[in-house]
Amino acid sequence: MVQMVNTLSPEPVGPKNIAYGHEVARRLFDRVRAAVRGRDDVIELVLTALFADGHILLEDFPGSGKTTLAKALGESIVDPRPDPERGLIESFRRIQFTPDLLPSDLTGTSIFEPNTGAFTFRPGPIFAHVVLADEINRTSPKVQSAMLEAMAEKQVTVDNKTRPLDALFFVIATQNPLDLAGTYPLPVAQLDRFLFKIRMTHIDRAAELEVLSTLRQRKAGAGRALPPVTRTEILETRALIEEQVQVHPMIQEALVDIATHLRVDRRVLQGVSTRALVLAVPALQTRAMLYGRDYVGAEDLEALLPRIFGHRLELGAGATEADQVIKAALAPVLERLARATLRGA
């Protein structure tokens, strides 16, 4: 993404062009990057999930910049619509999950107003463009389910009334991989709702130095000077990706073949679901768009599938690295795919 360039022909930028989406993503990337240093790869994946209409689970240690990232993302998306149309949707909300949290703390609740004598709905923190669900494994399964349902359905039900969430509802959940005492780890079935699970490692020395040296600028809000992205632009880009980025039948076949390979692998207890494949398609399309292409290529499969499938596999005893298993399943399929292109139709 650092060298993200538009390699397509310089046609006029309009709402119906890949280059348009590419430009939107570029703007968003630059703004987030101004706030978060040394995490370009994570930003790329977060943007992929955002445009692919998926959610993301970050597995990392406290102080690794996840709140900064989510906040920068939320602040980069503006909603210029007037209030009534917009409802009470905020651009960014953070929810700290604790064991005593209740579902209504997320969704909001109806409050009696003595002035009018009626109940009015006070929306919870879930009504936002970007929601940071911090330490999601610390809360009870009840709250987890409510959250995951909201993520899947994009709506919440309060007092028997179903209220839709914003179309651009994007969750960045986090969990601490080490401190597991008193937690409710998410089962594989629930992990399935997240498009990516990203395990963040410590950033390298140069990046860390850069974080320190740019501390003052970033405090002063260097990113805010950069042009933001509107909610509409993101929704348009989503539509455009779905419409314009080609997924060739060969790519679809490869996707299914890889899933089959994973399902028959002896090291895998439970293979990937069909939903995973369905979710993978927009993610692959988004990555193609981010790299300025109007077709999904083999390299998209190679780059994204370990991220998409990694947390959806249940491995048998003896196998510890899902990445190794996925790599083994990818290699023959990618080789066949590469050869198929030379053979021609």
């Binding site: 060298q3 780059a303 370990p306 290699a331």
Partner: peptide
């Protein structure tokens, strides 16, 4: 195009 940090190097693993 760039190889992201997650880019895989697919090994020439000979299955047993």
């Amino acid at each position: 195009m760039t190889s992201s940090a997650f880019a895989l190097s697919v090994p020439d693993a000979a299955p047993p």
